[in-house]
Amino acid sequence: MRTYLPAQLLPLAQRTGRWTIKKDRDDPVLYTTNLGSYLRCRVTGTSQLVFTISNRHSPLGPGQVYAVRVDDQPWRRFAAQPGKIGLSLTPGAHTVEIMAAGNTDLDAVWSGKQGFGIRSLAMDDGGTLTAMPGRPVIDFIGDSITAGCWVAGRHAALDYRPESNYAAICADMLGADSVRIAYSAGGALRPATGGVPVASTFLRRIDQETVWTPNHPQLVVVNLGVNDRRYPLPQFVKAYDRFIHQVTTTFPGATVDLLVPFSQHFRDQITTIGHHYRLRVIDTTGWCPSSTDGLHPDQAGTTIAGHHLAQAIVPDLAKKV
């Protein structure tokens, strides 16, 4: 079989996630700490496709999960534990996507190297792998709701759905590539799970030892704040203001839109800060009519939110393309 290693895969993944190359048991892996990061490519002339993946999860929690989609058909989910994901394909050209789709708050993604890793992609000897044509890029910055946690229920990893949460649905509707910069429980003041620090730090890094070189999106959507609700209001205002300034300077060529959290926490404060920076603040009242736990949208709720967001941001994306 013909095998593509991480160094060959990295250029194909840089538009669709925060990926880097790391060593795992002395072998390189295409590595990310972000749920919703994916590899999107075109494969031609092969009847089979085999992803070899790592499963560097915490032994105290369930294993990691990946999602795979071929030619925009429904996503299929695979446990990482076997270490391989095999697909059978018909002759011709196919669009293939593989996404980091499930982990747990126990996975030490920041300092313990317990993120997601793709070791290789193999196909028939006559097969070829090429990059997909460029599309508009949207960066989604947020917390567990943006990462896609708890969409299908209350079981960590198994019930996460970054492939079908509001960010994914919005990007699909607009024909855009997306980069997820989101961690469970994170906020402007509150550190995220997995050892991940606050948003001002995780924006700049993939993990403790890896600086992220910012990409060049047409649009950045920020959905943060709900996890800061237990901090004093003046502290939140100061921290959120600093973070939005950081976002605008990190992505100087992009339009930046701020979402009021679906829970409506800090609605007035986020609106004031957005207007100070001359940014659009998007009203999300009524966007998520159903949830799994009173806070995280379920599949029906997040689908509705994705449709609303796509309708709201299409003018901002169109003027940048």
Rank of each mutant, 00 (worst) to 15 (best):
T46P: 14
A147G: 14
T3L: 07
Q246E: 12
G102S: 01
A239I: 04
W287Q: 08
V321R: 14
Y38V: 02
N34W: 10
Q208F: 09
L158H: 01
H307P: 00
V198S: 13
Q311A: 14
L279E: 13
G45V: 08
S37M: 11
G127Y: 11
I282M: 08
A100D: 04
Q81N: 01
F116I: 04
V222K: 06
V151R: 00
R190C: 05
L121W: 06
A122S: 13
G187Q: 06
V281T: 15
Y4R: 02
I206Y: 05
G274H: 10
Q14H: 04
R180C: 13
V109T: 10
W150K: 00
V179I: 15
T210F: 05
S184W: 03
E163S: 12
D268P: 07
F262A: 01
V96M: 04
S290M: 00
L39I: 04
G253M: 09
D71C: 06
P191N: 06
A192M: 03
V65H: 01
S37Y: 10
P315N: 10
Y277C: 01
L174F: 05
Q81D: 04
G186F: 01
D172H: 14
Q14I: 09
Q73E: 12
H275T: 06
F236G: 03
L49E: 00
S47D: 14
Q311T: 15
H94W: 11
K22C: 11
T255K: 15
R205Y: 14
A101Y: 12
L129G: 09
R76Q: 15
T249R: 12
D27I: 07
S144D: 06
I145V: 14
R204D: 12
P74H: 03
P11C: 02
V198I: 14
A100K: 06
G301F: 02
N227K: 03
D139W: 13
S88G: 13
R161L: 09
T213G: 10
I85T: 13
I141Y: 04
G36H: 11
N223H: 13
E97G: 02
G61D: 08
I85D: 12
Q269P: 11
Q48L: 05
I98M: 06
Y277Q: 01
V222Q: 10
R278N: 11
I53Y: 11
L89Y: 09
G294A: 00
T193C: 05
Q311E: 15
G102V: 01
F251S: 07
C41Y: 09
